[in-house]
């Protein structure tokens, strides 16, 4: 297998699996169409991540990334946690195979989303997502996925297109 020992360790016995009940923040990223899905829930106390859990549908790398990012964020202040990047997660895992680097993008994205969700809730201005005409497919040709609205190639599974910002269908 092309995975590092650290990746395999986290895949075999992932840390912080599950979903926190009544979490202070939720971050959901990805969609199963193009690969993986990840949900991170956090409990915050005194601006510090007291508890963090994840659920992931995805390949071995995606599961290891989830486990690693929760380990890295646990006990950190929100400010510190926001500094965790996809790159630092991949580095902590001893690297990822080239074709799996997109999996590492999910980890920090989900964490950051959970923190932003916490801030939004705290400030009481949880934003309503903008309404768009809904589509239920992702464009696909020659092994690549494309945004159904603006036709930009989707390199990373994400709930939104990075170019036009419109929500992507989850199925």
């Amino acid at each position: 297998m092309q995975y590092s020992d650290t990746v395999m360790e986290h895949f075999r016995s992932p840390k912080n699996v599950g979903r926190i009940e009544n979490p202070d923040g939720i971050g959901e990223v990805g969609n199963p169409v193009c690969g993986d899905m990840m949900t991170i829930t956090i409990k915050v106390k005194d601006d510090r991540i007291e508890d963090i859990k994840f659920e992931t549908f995805g390949c071995g790398a995606a599961i290891a990334v989830s486990s690693m990012v929760t380990e890295m964020a646990k006990g950190k202040t929100l400010e510190e946690a926001l500094k965790i990047t996809n790159k630092s997660v991949a580095e902590q895992l001893g690297g990822l195979p080239k074709n799996k680097l997109h999996c590492s993008n999910l980890g920090a994205d989900a964490l950051h989303k959970a923190i932003m969700d916490y801030y939004a809730k705290k400030e009481g201005k949880a934003k309503e997502p903008k309404k768009f005409e809904k589509v239920d497919y992702i464009g696909e040709r020659e092994g690549k996925c494309y945004c159904p609205y603006c036709d930009t190639e989707l390199l990373t599974p994400a709930p939104f297109c990075k170019k036009c910002g419109k929500p992507l269908p989850s199925k």
């Binding site: 993986d36 995805g58 092994g143 996925c145 599974p157």
Partner: peptide, 19 residues
């Protein structure tokens, strides 16, 4: 595979494509 059982998958991830 970790448990010594070799099978195959047609998962998009394993083939190196996202499809």
């Amino acid at each position: 595979d970790e448990k010594g059982i070799c099978v195959s998958t047609r998962s998009a991830c394993a083939s190196g494509s996202l499809r």
